[in-house]
Every structure is written in C-alpha cells, then in structure tokens.
Simulated assay, not measured.
Amino acid sequence: MADIFESYTTGLESPATHLVAVVPSDTTDLDQASRALNTATSGTVQITTVSGTIATVFVNAGTTFPVRATRIWQTGTTATNIVAMY
C-alpha cells in the first residue's frame, strides 16, 4: 500500500501513527509519552503528564483527549479500554 504522507515530518498536530492498549498502573510508566488518549467508556483517568503534574480528568468515550501522559494510574481511573495514541 502506498503512503503519500511517508515523507512528511510527524508533529504534535499530526494524526497518531501508533495505538497502544494501556493497562493502568500505580507503579509503571507508559513505554512512551502519549500524544492523546481514547477510552471505550466514559470515566475518569488519573494521569501523570510529561511535566510531572498528576491530575484526574474526565474523558468521554470514543473521543480523543489530547494529553502528553507518562503514566495512567489504576487508582482514580474508572474509564476502561484506554488506548494511548502517539
């Protein structure tokens, strides 16, 4: 399959090129900081951002929530089937 965009530089405004299922953990960081998150069910997601801020945010199911997260916490997270996009 041809990819007419393969020679373009990927930036933060570009569509995600990798999708990784997230298992929330109170002790383990993501392998790579996210560009955004998506959830299958609406709910709260406790995150640590690349700046080190820890916050609990509400994410609507099926929407892209732009955030540079390094950890998705099990504690404080009620949303399910979380996908990190980068």
Rank of each mutant, 00 (worst) to 15 (best):
V57Q: 03
P66I: 08
T77I: 03
S25I: 02
D29F: 06
T49E: 11
Y8W: 12
T64R: 11
N60W: 05
V59R: 00
I72R: 00
S34L: 10
T48Y: 00
H18P: 00
Q32R: 12
E13T: 15
S25Q: 04
A69G: 06
V22S: 01
T28I: 13
T63S: 14
D31K: 04
T28L: 13
N81T: 13
I47N: 03
W73L: 04
T75N: 10
V45I: 15
S42Y: 06
A69K: 01
R68N: 10
V20M: 14
E6D: 13
A40W: 07
A69N: 04
P24E: 12
D31I: 06
T80H: 01
D26L: 10
S42H: 08
F58L: 14
G43R: 02
A40H: 06
T39R: 00
P66Q: 11
V57H: 03
T77Q: 05
T10S: 12
P66R: 14
T77Y: 02
V59M: 03
M1C: 07
A79V: 07
S7W: 08
T44W: 02
L30K: 03
R71I: 06
T27K: 05
V59S: 00
V22H: 01
G43P: 02
T70Q: 12
Q32H: 08
Y8K: 11
N60C: 00
G76M: 05
T78Y: 03
I47F: 12
D26E: 09
M1P: 03
T10P: 00
M1H: 10
N38R: 14
T64C: 06
W73A: 13
T49L: 06
R35V: 04
G62A: 08
T9Q: 14
T70C: 06
F5G: 00
A33Q: 08
R71M: 05
H18S: 11
G76W: 01
T41W: 08
F5E: 10
Q46G: 00
A16F: 12
M1T: 13
T53P: 00
P15L: 09
I47H: 02
T53R: 10
G43H: 03
I72K: 01
T28E: 15
T70K: 14
T80Q: 15
Q74K: 14
R68F: 10
S7I: 05
E6P: 00
S14N: 13
T53Y: 04
P24R: 07
A2S: 12
R68Y: 12
I82C: 05
Q46E: 10
G11P: 00
P66L: 08
V45A: 04
T64Y: 08
T63L: 10
T49R: 14
V67I: 15
A36N: 09
F58W: 11
A33T: 09
L37T: 01
